[in-house]
Structures are given as C-alpha cells and as structure tokens.
Amino acid sequence: MTRPDAAPSIARAAAARGTGFFGCWLLLAGPGWSNPAAAPVADVVVGLLAAAAATWASLHLLAPTPGRLRLGALGRLVLRFLWQSIVGGIDVARRALAPRLSLQPGYLVYPARPPPGPRRALFGALTSLVPGTLPVGTDSRGALVYHCLDLRQPVADGLARDEALMIAVCGEEATDV
C-alpha cells in the first residue's frame, strides 16, 4: 500500500477532510449564532480543535487512498444516488400499498469490480439505497450477493451503471475478479 506519493496524499486528504469537518462544525454550532458574521471567537477556536480531532480520528480509522476524486463525477454520483433512493422509496411504497402484492423476491449474484475493503463496502451501502436491491453478503468466489424484491426487473444493469459511475469518481484499483 505504501507508494512514493503517500505522504503528500495523506496531507491532501487531511486538509480536505479537516475542511469538511470544520464545515460540519459550522453547521452544528452555526444555528446558535444570531449573526454569522459575529461568530464568537471561542466557538471558532473550539471548532478548529474539534475538526482537528475529527480529522485525526478519520485518518486513523480510514487511511486515505492515493488518487484524487473527480469532483464532476462525484456530483453526478451524488445526484444519481439521491434520485435512486427516491425511486427506491417509491418502488417499495408502490409495492407495499398496491392491493395485490407484486413481488418476486430472490437472490442475484453480482461480480462487483471494487475489491473487498472500504470501496466495496461503499458500493454495497450505496446500492442498498437502489430500488429493489439489498446487498446481503459475498459468495465463495468473492462476488456480491444481492437480495432483490423483484427479479423481473433489470437489476444487474442498474448495478453496472452505478458501478461505472463510482469507478469514474474514485478511479479503478486492481481487482481480483
């Protein structure tokens, strides 16, 4: 995992995450300020300290991976998954509220490209919001197993599109599939 560019990539990740966490702090503490421009200095100082601590914890728990995020693709990913979660909700609601249950549940094995690890987990988490699918584990050959509400739907196609988008965002790593 150690590569020549590890140190700058850690520094970059720390800066990015720290900025993000400080932004989160502003969200948390901000509503208490009657006037954002006159934010109490102590609040900001504590916020910086908290963001530093959060960054430290974050780097400790989730080591940064080399390679940079492509922001444009990230935007599209976020939008797609927001949209997918809406569609997913509507899909479930439609089935639940329909007078006759229209389900054909079953399993689907999907050989996902992200290797086991954070990215695979992220892929699993994101696709758990996608209509009709729920990742339930990994089979003996390392492929993801999904439980589907309705096997008649083109679930695998959707997953492939999600996967392509995700790889576009954070780059591809060598996979063992």
Binding site: F21, C24, A50, S58
Partner: peptide, 26 residues
C-alpha cells in the same frame, strides 16, 4: 464484523466526535 459495519465505524466516529464536542460546548 461485516464490511458494512466496518464502513460505518470508519465514517461515523469523526462526525460523532464533532457532535459530542458540540454538545459539550453548547
């Protein structure tokens, strides 16, 4: 621990730390 749990434990604690500090501070 499954992959989903590990991911949660990697992503959530820094945010929770912010919330915890915020609660103490506020």
């Amino acid at each position: 621990p499954g992959a989903a749990l590990v991911l949660l434990a990697q992503v959530l604690p820094p945010l929770g730390l912010l919330v915890g500090v915020h609660l103490f501070w506020t």
